[in-house]
């Protein structure tokens, strides 16, 4: 990615309704390059739906999504991923019957062996790219601490390990922008610190921009440069963690409920 001015990701007036329910109601926000943005809010605030609209998993009814300055509103998920946005899911979506390392190698971009004729003919380039992807995946397994699970089927992992696997899978795509949906949900406390450290290290060492949905305020406080609070389908507050926590609207709509 050539560094260019402007935000990594921008939402302009995004809206989505399901039948009579307005899930996202004119949401606008932007994520700066290299930033870790936290997205918090009560259940049903529309956070995950917003992620779906940003990543192209669902089409927005209205509004625009700009990815590195390009309007990607009409593009499906895989095309947005190719342009540098990938994501994890609220409930970990590991590929059950693929091994842990296969889950990663799958995500390596531009594998020549994915084309039908190359899969059949197997020119040398296929094996070369496959070797490189496997080596890279092996390194990433070390990074997230799953190296000893390499050949396990992914369904055998614990909840936290699945989250780590998803994180590593996003990294190998090379996408500069990663959306993490409830990255700490269902993760054992002992693993949570490891997960938080890993995310912080990824930003430092791999130069990624991250947007994180999370209910664990400790994780958000430690990790995020900036926090956006959603309620009723749109952002109601935006600022650094301490300022947002002190905002009376936030206390009333979200934090107050948790207390």
């Amino acid at each position: 990615m050539t560094p260019a001015p402007g935000p990594a990701l921008e939402a302009r007036g995004l809206g989505k309704r399901f039948g009579g329910v307005v899930a996202v109601d004119g949401a606008s926000l932007s994520v700066g390059r290299g930033e870790i943005l936290g997205l918090i809010g009560p259940n049903g605030a529309g956070k995950s739906t917003l992620f779906d609209l940003l990543s192209g998993v669902q089409r927005a009814d209205r509004g625009q999504v700009l990815l590195f300055g390009e309007d990607v509103t009409a593009l499906p998920a895989h095309a947005r991923a190719r342009r540098g946005l990938t994501r994890t899911f609220q409930l970990a979506r590991e590929l059950d019957r693929l091994t842990v390392i296969e889950n990663l190698v799958l995500a390596a971009p531009d594998q020549p062996g994915e084309a039908l004729w190359r899969a059949l003919v197997r020119p040398a380039a296929v094996a070369r790219a496959e070797r490189a992807a496997i080596a890279r995946a092996g390194e990433l397994l070390e990074t997230v601490g799953l190296a000893d699970k390499r050949h396990e089927p992914a369904r055998a992992l614990s909840g936290g390990q699945k989250k780590l696997l998803e994180l590593a899978r996003c990294l190998i795509t090379g996408a500069p922008l990663i959306l993490l949906d409830e990255v700490g949900a269902g993760v054992a406390p002992a693993l949570l610190d490891h997960l938080t450290d890993t995310i912080a290290r990824i930003r430092r060492e791999h130069d990624r921009t991250l947007m994180v949905i999370e209910h664990n305020m400790g994780l958000i406080g430690r990790l995020c440069d900036r926090v956006v609070v959603m309620a009723g389908g749109k952002p109601i507050a935006d600022g650094d963690f301490d300022a947002v926590c002190a905002d009376p609207r936030v206390v009333e709509s979200y934090l107050g409920l948790a207390a």
Binding site: S55, V57, P76, A77, H78, A81, R82, T86, R87, F89, R93, L95, D96, R97, L98, L106, A107, P109, E114, R169, C170, T173, A175
Partner: peptide, 11 residues
């Protein structure tokens, strides 16, 4: 296994 995953990974 789950077609949403490869889509989110650019396939």
């Amino acid at each position: 296994e789950d077609e949403l995953v490869p889509a989110a990974l650019g396939k």
